[in-house]
């Protein structure tokens, strides 16, 4: 069974190696500053005890004021996983250093994030759109893409046959 390398343990390990690092940790994941993502990625990959040689996935979540880039890592020899996140400071023109020099597997995934979320990856060898054509207006996975006038949200607020406990007004 794969073991999750918990955020607290990983944060302690990184604090030894990078004393000046400002990171926060939760039970399940750690959050590192975007500027340090490449050296941290390199350390996570090369450290014999961590050995995160396999990058499972890179993806991003739009939290309206900022973006969260999520890296899922796997060690094949130790059979443990870890989740590393980094938060962008900007929402209009977010830039995060690329991890392609560390894991080639990020190459297409970072292009996908750029295409759909609009996060630019600095140092990526081929930062172009991948699914949509050049000149497509906007980045469709952003939460503010195609927002309706007067603050309306598309879709239903409550779905049919859903049982929701009654809320006080």
């Amino acid at each position: 069974m794969t073991k999750l390398f918990g955020g607290r343990e990983l944060a302690a390990r990184l604090a030894e190696q990078f004393p000046d690092l400002t990171l926060s940790s939760e039970e399940q994941y750690i959050v590192v500053p975007p500027a340090d993502i490449e050296p941290i990625a390199r350390f996570l990959r090369d450290d014999p005890q961590l050995d995160f040689k396999f990058l499972i996935s890179v993806t991003a979540v739009d939290w309206l004021e900022y973006f969260e880039v999520v890296y899922h890592l796997q060690s094949l020899s130790k059979n443990h996983t870890a989740v590393v996140k980094t938060l962008t400071t900007d929402h209009d023109m977010p830039i995060v250093p690329s991890v392609v020099p560390v894991w080639q597997g990020a190459q297409l995934q970072e292009r996908e994030i750029y295409d759909l979320m609009g996060i630019r990856f600095d140092g990526h060898p081929d930062m172009r759109r991948i699914f949509l054509w050049d000149g497509f207006p906007g980045h469709p996975l952003r939460k503010d893409f195609l927002s309706l006038p007067s603050g309306l949200q598309p879709g239903l607020q409550q779905f049919p046959r859903e049982s929701v406990p009654e809320q006080s007004q």
Partner: peptide, 16 residues
């Protein structure tokens, strides 16, 4: 509904 729904698709990543 899910706030974010991401598929880690093997066909796509194997093309890297």
């Amino acid at each position: 509904a899910p706030y974010r729904f991401h598929i880690r698709s093997p066909s796509y990543i194997n093309l890297t």
